[in-house]
Simulated scan of single mutants.
Amino acid sequence: MNYLAHLYFSDLTPDSCVGQLLPDCMAQRQLPDSVSDELARHIALHQFIDRFTDQHPDVLALKAQFQPPYRRFAGVLIDVFFDHVLAREWQQWHVQPIELFAHQVYAALADYQGPENDRLNALRHALLSHRWLPGYAYPLGVERALQGLDRRSRFKTPLAEAHQLLPDMYPEIATRFSSFFPELRAAVAAQKQHQ
């Protein structure tokens, strides 16, 4: 899952929001020996969400739909496209309007005081300055997200053009998401009870 979906499972506190972002920005070995319990729980939850997503039959079936040169990047594309579906259908999945949810996330990210590296710092400031979470609901938001991923890549990718796949693939992506996301929510709720 990408940023919006991971943040969906935060508790809207500084450490929970950053814990849902940090594993994409900092290797486990870079973390200090001592972090808050909340940050540690959400780092572990982020990793659980990634494992659950990568192994889910709906995600595996979607990955098989991508042709070269996109097949190699199918996991990344599904993450972004699922964020698009989540943002478009937000009212079905969350009690708050997406704008209010995003405002609370931005406030939490601004208040964060824990361990950080340049990559996490850049991501926090990009989220705060560009306020792009509700933008995932729109094709332009998806295009910008994919262009950003392409820019940050260490090698040449086709991600900047991959938004062109979305119109044709959207019906299947939305169908797969509607099957997958309730199962992810249930799995996360069970995981939180055991943490």
Rank of each mutant, 00 (worst) to 15 (best):
S153D: 07
A187V: 00
P139Y: 14
I98V: 12
L22D: 04
L22P: 00
W93V: 03
T157D: 09
A137E: 07
R51D: 15
G135I: 05
D37I: 14
Q113V: 09
Q193W: 07
A126Q: 13
V80L: 03
N121T: 15
Y138A: 13
T13G: 06
Q28E: 13
V59F: 06
I78F: 05
E38T: 11
Q67R: 14
Q92C: 11
L149V: 05
C17R: 04
Q195R: 08
R152T: 10
A87F: 11
L159E: 09
P167D: 09
I98R: 01
L12T: 05
V76K: 04
A186E: 12
D11E: 14
H125W: 07
D50V: 08
C25M: 14
D118F: 10
Y170P: 02
P171I: 08
A162F: 02
A126F: 13
Q193A: 14
P139V: 09
A87I: 04
A44C: 09
A40D: 06
Q20T: 08
T175G: 13
P32V: 01
A174W: 05
P158Q: 09
Q67N: 12
R51P: 04
L127S: 01
D58F: 08
A122C: 06
Q113G: 04
A102V: 03
P171F: 07
P134D: 08
A145V: 05
M1T: 05
D50T: 03
Q113Y: 07
W93P: 01
T175D: 15
S36L: 06
H94M: 10
K156P: 02
K156G: 09
Q195N: 13
S153L: 10
V35I: 11
A137S: 09
A160I: 05
W90E: 02
L12V: 07
S36V: 07
L86F: 01
G114C: 00
M26H: 03
T175Y: 12
P167M: 04
S10F: 00
I49T: 07
S34Y: 13
R144K: 12
W132Y: 15
Q20H: 13
S34Q: 15
Q164D: 12
R119D: 10
Q67A: 14
E116K: 06
A108L: 07
I49V: 11
V95H: 15
A187F: 01
S10Y: 03
F82H: 01
N117F: 03
